[in-house]
Structures are given as C-alpha cells and as structure tokens.
C-alpha cells in the first residue's frame, strides 16, 4: 500500500513534468503562429490602405491616370514572403526542439557517465581505506581484492566503450575481419559471454540451424554479445531465461536473442538504438548504464553490413533482438548458380 502510494505520487509528478514540457512547447508554437498571422494581417492592411491612399491621391493629382485594379504582383509577392517567413519560423522551431532534446540527452549522458565512473571509484576507494585502516581477516581481504578487480574491469569497460564508439564514428576503427563458420564460431562466442556474466548454463538455450560462412571481426562480435547478455540480465526481474537461435541459409544469417525480461513498450523499440538514449521508467529494475551500449551494438552490426531490430509484445513479455547479417557465398553455391544461368 505504501509502495502504491509512492508510485502514484511519482507518476503524478512525472506527468506534471511531461505536461509542462508539452505545454511550454505548445505555447511557443502557438505564439509563433500568432506572430506570423499578425504580420500577415498587418501586411494586407498596409497594402490595402496604401493602395486606397494612392488611388485618392492619384485621382486628385491627375484624374487621367487610370487605376483599374491593384497590381497583383506585389500583393502576392508579399504574401509569399510572409508564408516563407512562417515556414522558416516552423523550421527554426523544429530545429530548436531537436537541439533541446539533444541537450537533454547529453545532460543525461553526463549524469549517467558520472554515476558510472564514480560508483566503482568510490567502491575501490572504500575497500582500500578499509584495508588500510582495519585489521581485515585474510578471507575478507581476498573477497575485497576480487570486488576491486570487478570495479576496475567496470571502469575499463566504460572507458573502452567511449573510445571505441568514437573510433567507429570517425571511421578510424580497424576491424580484423576473418572468415568463420557461423554455426561453430557464434555459439562459442555466446557461451563465452554468458560465462563471463555468470549466466547459468541451464538458463541459456542455444539452437543452430544450417551452416554458413560469415566474415566478421571476432572482438567486435564479443562486444555485441556481451552487451546483449548484460542488457538481458539488467532488465529482468526474476530468473533470466535466454533463448538464442542462429539460423543460416544461403542468403543471410539470422540471430535472435529472446529473453523473458521486463519487455519494451512499442514506442521505445526503435529509440533504444539511439545514442545516449535510456528509458526512464519506474518499473525498470536497473538504473545503471550510459545509453551507449545498444548504440555501440548497432554501429558494429552496421559496420558488418547487417541490421539489428528489437521487438517486444509489451511490458513483462520479454524482448527479442534480431540481427541479420550477410553470409559469404560459398564457391559451390556460386558454381551451382552459374550452372543454373547457363541452363
């Protein structure tokens, strides 16, 4: 009951915040439209009144001048200019909105990176100070060293991810592509990642259909599987069950990662691959992360000329990540195709 009360309070405050953001933008937009409409009105008023004055003056000064109709060109020209102005206003408004959104994402990223850097750092400092100031038993000491090593690994991963993403983006990443037999190479890589995250072997179901050759960078693919498994662990509430299917055929290789985690709302399914993007939801059991993991995964897959998508039936219904990669056509297949063409 207490929890429900708190959740309700938070949701109200969250809705108010979102409402404020929406109302502010709407007010700016409406005001901008009013300004341009007023300008348009002013222009028509100015044009018509000047025309009338000119007509009166013309009649008084020289009745011979025949002014039948007002000239259409400046009138239409003025309206076109004003419409252009309003269009530019809408463009500026859109651009501004994008900038605001980017700024917010960037601020969140800085907050998240600060958190991700400082948390392991505080933990290491705490253990070091404990070891210096207390008489810690040998067993505990060993435990503390292991925890500190986990923290340094976490720091290293974070720093690596930032550096590697920057390399990929600036096309400076040197990948060592090599040919691998997908049905042998990928399961081994996935099992390695699962073991690294201490995922119980019974909770990982691996299925392979067909065989094909793929040209991939093993190091990069390890990062892909590490991130996908880490995410599956982070965003599951009960015991995680992970089903991985690797389907090979002559045209493509398909890898599906299906978990039984908290799922994804449909409007977030594309956004999760955006840089810095993180879902802020009260039902998410984990607040760690930088919003870079899935972006990194997407960039690696893109670098391998593949595609990645996410799908979920909704909240609490798990998430399926689908990766499609091109396969290396075997010589036999190519010969058969050539034969087919000749026949």
């Amino acid at each position: 009951m207490i929890f429900d009360y708190c959740v309700k309070e938070f949701r109200i405050s969250f809705m108010i915040r979102r409402k404020h953001y929406f109302v502010n933008n709407l007010v700016i937009f409406v005001l901008a439209q009013l300004v341009w409409l007023a300008l348009l009105g002013l222009w028509i008023y100015w044009y018509v009144s000047n025309y009338l004055i000119f007509e009166q003056v013309g009649e008084t000064v020289s009745p011979q001048i025949n002014i039948d109709t007002p000239s259409v060109f400046p009138f239409v020209g003025g309206i076109v200019l004003l419409v252009g102005l309003s269009f530019s206003l809408v463009l500026i408004f859109r651009h501004l909105n994008v900038q605001i959104r980017l700024r917010r994402l960037y601020d969140n990223f800085i907050d998240n990176v600060t958190h991700e850097l400082k948390s392991p750092l505080s933990s290491i400092q705490l253990y070091l100070e404990t070891l210096v100031s207390r008489d810690v038993p040998q067993e505990k000491r060993k435990e503390f060293y292991e925890l500190m090593m986990k923290d340094t690994a976490r720091l290293q991963n974070l720093i690596n991810s930032i550096l590697e993403i920057s390399k990929i983006e600036s096309k400076k990443k040197r990948s060592s592509f090599a040919l691998h037999q997908a049905n042998e190479f990928l399961p081994k890589l996935i099992e390695d990642s699962a073991a690294q995250f201490r995922l119980n072997r019974n909770d990982l179901k691996l299925e392979t259909t067909g065989s094909c050759e793929i040209e991939v960078d093993a190091g990069s693919f390890k990062i892909v599987f590490d991130n996908l498994i880490d995410n599956a662990i982070k965003y599951s509430t009960g015991s995680l069950k992970l089903e991985v299917k690797i389907i090979c055929n002559q045209k493509k290789l398909e890898i599906t990662f299906k978990d039984n985690g908290i799922g994804l709302p449909s409007n977030e399914q594309k956004k999760i691959f955006q840089k810095f993007y993180r879902i802020y939801d009260k039902d998410i059991p984990n607040v760690k992360g930088t919003g870079l993991g899935l972006y990194w995964v997407k960039e690696i897959i893109k670098n391998h000329k593949g595609k990645i998508t996410a799908h979920s039936e909704g909240k609490a219904k798990g998430t399926t990540i689908n990766i499609v990669l091109p396969v290396r056509k075997s010589k036999v297949t190519e010969i058969e195709r050539e034969k087919g063409k000749l026949q």
Partner: peptide
C-alpha cells in the same frame, strides 16, 4: 544502495 560492491563494503564497515 543499488551498487552491490559499494553496499557490501559499507555494510562491512558499519558492522565493524
């Protein structure tokens, strides 16, 4: 505290 490593260290020190 949701950071497991940090929480374990804090718990140890507070208990000490």
């Amino acid at each position: 505290e949701d950071e497991e490593n940090l929480a374990m260290g804090l718990e140890y020190n507070l208990k000490e």
